[in-house]
Each structure stands twice: as structure tokens, then as C-alpha cells.
Write a protein that binds this DNA or RNA. Structure first.
Lengths: 352, 352
DNA sequence: TTGTAGGCGTTATCAG
DNA sequence: CTGATAACGCCTACAA
């Protein structure tokens, strides 16, 4: 049963191996060049031959070899994105919008995650480049200098999102984390809270976390509360970690009356722990989040948080990158607004 | 400043273009073959030359061209996975485990999402194949016949997860959706509930949803409750949809006393709506979920749900695929256990 | 241990 | 409109 090679026999080609341009050409009795044209510039081929070729393509189940195409044409129609994590939904909506916008223009997205590690991110950048990413979306500003060197050397357009970078450096599209967190903190202070705690993500290698923490201090100072009084716990984003951090905070005497969380996931964990400990939110303690993901309105009590323009950032980043790839100018960085969403988890400070 | 070409000058290479093996070879004064060996089989190169080569690699920031490598070596060390959606966390944990297991063996993962559309999935399969995926993870059993044809023709190992497929067809690793849902329904019935409702994902093209619905009917029949009495609403997985479905159910007279949801996300929506409508759960109505994602223990009341062995499926699928790719035999399909997690959202049926 | 050279599947530049 | 043919960057016998 084992035949030799498919060769140019007009019969059923041997199944089991990826057909190539040559196989299609043989079956359609044309040259490989013509097949290639049928696929890439159909209008440059006569109707009759095109039909014959397409028929052969279908019959053989032919699909062009991506690597070979990248090699020969030096283009891939592929963009890359590196996000810190896929484990929670923080980046899901933004990435979805990014993807949709690219998809509309026939561009494929390659996603990698860095686990909040600059070294890992540098590695991922290398991988994306090797795989032919023509443009790259990055989150935030903290990364190794080599990461930027790599991208610049290869002339690969890149944009940083989830942050607002003034001045030189890469083009950014995002919001001012410090300003947003300061505004939220101001609201908390206006409710009479003076003993504040912040559950932050580890700030090393995470400029968003750092800026949010700075925002808290800034607002405290502006309201005449010594920033040094802030109780700060660093812990990676996860519900469990949020719960643990909250428990530790509640063990202090005196207790903080407001617990600000670096994002909604930590805040959800804090709420779970509060319920478990029988602590009333916001009656005894207020809790706030950051991001306004769907989770924020599901939990009880619903979270007061900062609404981040996820979709706008994702779509905007896609448009900027496509423009850059096409050699157009996209101007300076773009600042979007983050707004405060007041829900039930923030209330007035208890007397005393 | 514009030089001609980098050539073999020993000085600083011209920055701005991706260096190739040849560039590295020139700088290290060896042949391209030696550089290639340094990268792929370091032990076959003398210490001295290897150092020189690696130094050149670093200096030039060289990274091998993925496409070229795939073309020449006919291997990519890349696996693919197609999941129905990235929008909610249903598949996050399983995929994470899948990825970790692959990463341990130096394999890169390409992820695509099908939006629960068999046609889109077929398209994604083509794309993954074209990009060199050497093995593919799929979710569930419903797909176009062509999808399987494509994979078989190319001899691409594939495994289906999140389901348990007996008999012929592709190897599977997962749990029995029907059995799990039947077990959960039995618990509900034992609590005295007789007016049941099911909020399911659209069953067309989704065997897991179909089997779960069948499980409900099966358990009802076994308990002497006419399956025809089941009120069924189909709606895509999302919190908002879950909330809307719940509202519609509560508008019926008589109301169902237990609302089973096809997954935790829908159930979370139902709970939100219940709170909004001032309906007590489980006092007036019981609600159950499916999946046991983190969300399930965050919501109020915490969800009674089916714990799905996400991580075990992901890791197991990775091991099976790697074995298959290496030509080993992996035996038949593997059935894992899904267990019921009893939390607060399920209680006894109100009298009357 | 190292170098030479052919080929992987595709695109693109030429002639016909 | 179609067909040769030379790249593209890398791997791998095969030779030295």
C-alpha cells in the first residue's frame, strides 16, 4: 500500500503529509508561481486557471507554511502582546479589545505573559521577535534596558499601555495611576478616615503599583495626614493573598478604618476575609479596589473602585501600533481618564 | 553614516537589522554550521570556539528566525490549544497548568479562542497547523468533521479535554459532564425542590452544555419528577446574561424554587440579580453553579457547585500530547472525577 | 572539531 | 497571464 511519492499523478494524492505549493501546482498543472499568485493576488490570474488552482487547494487541504512565507515575504501579519498575567481577569477586557481591532485588519495576535518579571518579559520579547511579531504591546514602564534595546535594534514598533508616560521613551496609551489613586484616596479621607492601610502588589518592577502607592501618600499629605502613618502590605495579586493581607491588618491595634487595595482581586479577597471574620463592611471597615472588573459589582458589598478604560486602551494601542507599522506618525502619548465608581464598600469612618 | 553592509568587519555591526547566523559566524570567525551547533548541540563544539560564538551572539543580540528554523528542521517545539473563550476564567486554571507542564519541557504554547463556534475553531486549527503546532489541545467533542480530517491528515496528535469520550474518536481527558450534573441535581431534589430551572449555555456546538442538561433530566426522571417540567433557558456565558435569565425565571408563576446554572459565571449573575430583586438565596430560591472557579467562593451566598479538576486536566493533557508527539502510546481516554462542593446557595425547598 | 553545500516552502523578479 | 529562478535563514548530512 505504501506508494512512492505523490508525484504528478492526477489521482488522489497520498494523505498524511502536508501538501506544499508544489503539490497544488502539480495537481492544477500550473507552476508554483501561479499558485502563489492565486493566493496572494487573485486578480493577477485568469479566472479559468484560478478556479482550477483553488479546486486543487481544496482537494489537497493545502495551507501555506507560515514559516516559509515569513522567510520569503519578510512579513507575518502578526503582532505580539506581553501581559503580566493571565490568571485573573485584569487584562482580559483590554486584550480582547486589542485583539478585535487587530482581527478587523487581518492581523494575528500572539500573547505571552511575564508573571510580573522583567527578566521573563525580556525573554518573551525575544521569543515574539523570533516568531516574527511586527509590533508589540507592553504593559507599564518597568523593564530591563535590554528589552528596549532589542525592540529598537529590530525597529519594532511598540507601545506601552496601562500607564501614562510623559516625555521621551516609548509611546504610551493609558491613564495616570498616581492621579487616579490620589483621587480615590481623597474620597476616602473625605469620609473621615484617618487610619489608612494599602494592600499593594509588589512594587519592584511594577510602576503601576508604585504610582498607585504614591498616589495614596500624595493625597494623605494634601489632607494633612502624615503619609508615614500609612500601613502598607505588599502581596501578589490573588484573592487568597488579599484575604490574608486583610486578616493581618485586622490583627493590628488600632485597626485601620479603611483598606485600600491595589486592585479588585485583592479587594475581593479582603471582603471574603471580612465576612469570614464577621467584620462589617463598610460599617466597621471600608474597602476599595482598583480596575473595575466585572468582579467588582458581584461581590458583597459591591466595590468602590477606579474604573479603568480597558477597552479604550486596548483598541487605541492596536490602532497606534498599526499606524506605526505602516510608517505613519502617531504623535505623542495619549492620556485617557480613569474615573471613580462609588459603590457600597466605602462608607464614613466609624466615630472614634 | 549609512554604511554598506555589515560584511565581515570585526567592528561594531550596523544596528537596525536582525542579525543572522551568517552575521554571528562572521563576527566569531567560524562557519554558520558551527554557530548552529553551538545553539542546538553545544557539546559538539569545543569550549573555546563556543565561547567566542556565544560572545558574538550576545554582542549582536542574535535570535534565531523561528520560521527559518521550522523550515529547515521541520520542528517547532510548539503546541497549540483552542479554548472556547478567554473572556471569563473558566479555562484559565486548566490552561495555566497545561502551559506550565509544556514549559517544563521547553515547549511553547500558542493559544487561540473559538468563541464557541465550530467554524471558527476549524479556522483556528488551520492557523495553528500553518504556524507549526506539533500537537493540539481541544475542548469538548463538538466540531466540524473537517477539523478532525485536517488533524488526521497532517498526523497531528490531539487530545480533547473537559469531556469524557468513550469508544473511538480522539483520546480524551476529562470528566463526565452528564454524570456530574445528574449528581448535583440529585442533591437539589433531595432538598425537596420540585420546580427546577436550568440556565444553560447554548447547546448547539457545545457537548458539555448538552450533557449537563441531559444530566438534569436524567436525575429528575430517576426521582420521579417529569423532566418535561424543567424550565430551560439558553444564554451565552456571562454575568449579565445570568442575571437576565434569572430575572425572567423569577417572573414566572409559580416560580422555580431552584435555579441550576450551567456554570459559575451564570450563577454569579443570578445571585447578583437575586440581590437586586430582594430575593433571598437560598431562603426563597436555591442557586447552583458548575466549575468551582475562584468566583464561586467569593459571591454571597457562596455557590454550591461542581468542582472540576481543571489543573489535572491541563497537566494530563500536556503529558498525553507530549507522549503522542514522541510516538509513544497513551492508551485510552482518561476519566477524572468531578465532585460536588456544597456551599450556602443551596438549601431546602420552602414549604408549599 | 569544523566547514561545505543542498534543501526546507514560499515569494518576487524577471523574461517569455 | 504564466513560468523559471534566485533569494529568505537555518539545519544537517557529508567531507575534510
Amino acid at each position: 500500500m505504501a506508494e512512492d511519492r505523490p508525484g504528478t499523478d492526477g489521482g488522489m494524492a497520498w494523505e498524511g503529509i502536508s501538501p506544499t505549493l508544489e503539490d497544488v501546482a502539480a495537481r492544477a498543472k500550473v507552476s508554483t508561481a501561479t499558485v502563489s499568485r492565486c493566493l496572494n493576488a487573485p486578480q493577477r490570474v485568469s479566472e479559468r486557471t484560478r478556479e482550477r488552482v483553488m479546486e486543487a487547494v481544496r482537494a489537497l487541504g493545502y495551507a501555506p507554511h507560515f514559516g516559509a512565507r515569513a522567510l520569503a515575504a519578510n512579513r507575518t501579519n502578526t503582532f505580539g502582546a506581553i501581559i503580566p498575567t493571565m490568571e485573573n481577569a485584569i487584562f482580559a477586557r483590554g486584550l480582547q479589545a486589542f485583539q478585535e481591532e487587530l482581527g478587523r485588519h487581518g492581523i494575528t495576535l500572539l500573547v505571552a505573559s511575564s508573571s510580573y518579571s522583567p527578566e521573563l518579559e525580556e525573554e518573551q520579547i525575544r521569543t515574539l521577535i523570533a516568531r516574527g511579531a511586527e509590533a508589540v504591546l507592553l504593559i507599564g514602564q518597568d523593564r530591563t534596558p535590554e528589552s528596549y534595546t532589542l525592540l529598537r535594534r529590530r525597529r519594532i514598533p511598540h507601545v506601552v499601555a496601562w500607564t501614562n508616560a510623559r516625555g521621551e521613551g516609548p509611546v504610551s496609551i493609558g491613564f495616570d495611576n498616581r492621579k487616579a489613586m490620589a483621587a480615590l484616596t481623597a474620597r476616602v479621607l473625605e469620609q473621615g478616615h484617618r487610619r489608612l492601610a494599602l494592600v499593594s502588589a509588589p512594587r519592584a518592577g511594577n510602576d503601576r503599583a508604585r504610582e498607585r502607592a504614591e498616589g495614596v501618600s500624595e493625597a494623605m499629605a494634601a489632607h494633612g495626614v502624615p503619609p508615614a502613618d500609612l500601613v502598607l502590605i505588599e502581596t501578589p495579586y490573588s484573592i487568597t493573598n488579599g484575604a490574608e493581607a486583610f486578616a493581618r491588618l485586622m490583627a493590628r491595634r488600632p485597626r485601620p478604618t479603611a483598606v485600600l487595595c491595589g486592585n479588585d482581586v485583592l479587594a475581593a479577597g479582603a471582603l471574603r476575609q471580612a465576612r469570614e471574620m464577621g467584620i462589617d463592611v463598610p460599617g466597621e471597615v471600608s474597602v476599595t479596589g482598583f480596575d473595575d472588573i466585572e468582579l467588582a459589582e458581584i461581590v458583597t458589598p459591591a466595590l468602590t473602585t477606579v474604573h479603568v478604560p480597558h477597552r479604550a486602551m486596548g483598541a487605541g494601542a492596536a490602532r497606534k501600533l498599526m499606524a506605526l507599522r505602516n510608517g505613519e506618525d502617531v504623535g505623542a502619548s495619549e492620556e485617557l481618564e480613569a474615573t471613580i465608581v462609588w459603590r457600597e464598600s466605602l462608607g464614613p469612618a466609624a466615630v472614634g
